[in-house]
Simulated scan of single mutants.
Amino acid sequence: MTRKRAQTPDWNRLFDFALGQAGLFTTKQAAESGYSPQLLVHYVHIGKVVRIRRGVYRLVHYPLAQDEGLVTVWLWSEQQGVFSHETALSLHHLSDVLPNKIHLTLPADWKHRRFRVPPGVVLHHADVATAERSRPAAIPVTSPLRTLQDCARAQLSPELLHQAISQALDRGLIRKSDVARIQDATSPTGHRKR
């Protein structure tokens, strides 16, 4: 019987994971790079990495990123979540919305999973198609049109929604024909009152 040799830790591979994630990486990514949980604990003790939350670490010498909190939540979601609703409005710089919670949409089949949601995170469950996603930073965000539709369904204040629609039109992020689809989302039946 042959024993499988332990993979040699590969700092470059770990750094490649962290590079596109604001200096953060997961325990799973560390394992794929040859780092055992024991070696990670050692690196925490000697100050090479910092534990951000369970299963998420940051390289100490990587510059702090403005969106580190969002990347941490995205990594917590096993990279399956998409930032949506008011969080996406803010990331797209649409309206004067100042979200006090992080909105994250997880796949619909995650609805019945049991797990501890990070503080300050509001979960939504829906399947977000590739065409309804954008990536303005290290994290996936719902497209401007999907974001506006989600905010309309969630009954964002009419003033902020109107402001966001106007700004999206002015910046060419949506078309005039999309406005009706957004307005359809405001009605409980999914259709505008005529």
Rank of each mutant, 00 (worst) to 15 (best):
R13V: 09
V128Q: 06
T87I: 02
Q80L: 15
A131S: 12
R114A: 11
A164S: 13
H124M: 08
Q66N: 07
S143V: 07
H112V: 12
R181E: 15
A6R: 14
L173F: 09
L104A: 06
L70S: 05
W74Y: 15
P144V: 09
R113Q: 13
D67A: 02
L24W: 01
P118N: 08
R133N: 01
V121S: 06
G55I: 04
L169F: 12
T2A: 13
R51H: 12
S84F: 04
V49C: 03
R133T: 04
F25C: 04
D170N: 14
A65V: 00
Q66K: 13
H103L: 00
R192W: 03
Q149D: 07
V49M: 01
Q80N: 14
H93C: 05
D109E: 15
W74A: 02
L40V: 06
L24D: 00
W76K: 03
K101M: 13
Q183G: 01
R113M: 12
C151Y: 05
A88K: 04
V56R: 01
V56F: 01
I182S: 08
K193Q: 08
L160I: 12
H42W: 05
A137W: 04
A131I: 04
L59S: 00
V44M: 11
P140I: 10
N100W: 15
S187M: 12
T2M: 09
H125L: 07
A65G: 02
D150W: 02
R175C: 02
L106R: 11
I139D: 12
S157R: 15
L19R: 12
I182C: 08
L19G: 09
R5W: 04
T2K: 14
G69F: 03
S187Q: 12
E68A: 13
R116W: 01
I174N: 09
T189N: 01
K101V: 14
K28H: 09
A154Y: 07
A185K: 09
V50E: 14
W74R: 00
H85V: 07
Q80D: 11
L59H: 03
D170C: 03
V60L: 05
G81T: 10
F15D: 01
H125K: 11
P37R: 15
S134L: 01
P140G: 12
R5F: 07
A138D: 12
L19E: 13
Y57K: 02
P63M: 05
A137T: 13
T72Q: 14
A129K: 15
V117F: 02
H93N: 14
T8Q: 11
A31R: 14
R153F: 01
G47Y: 11
I165K: 06
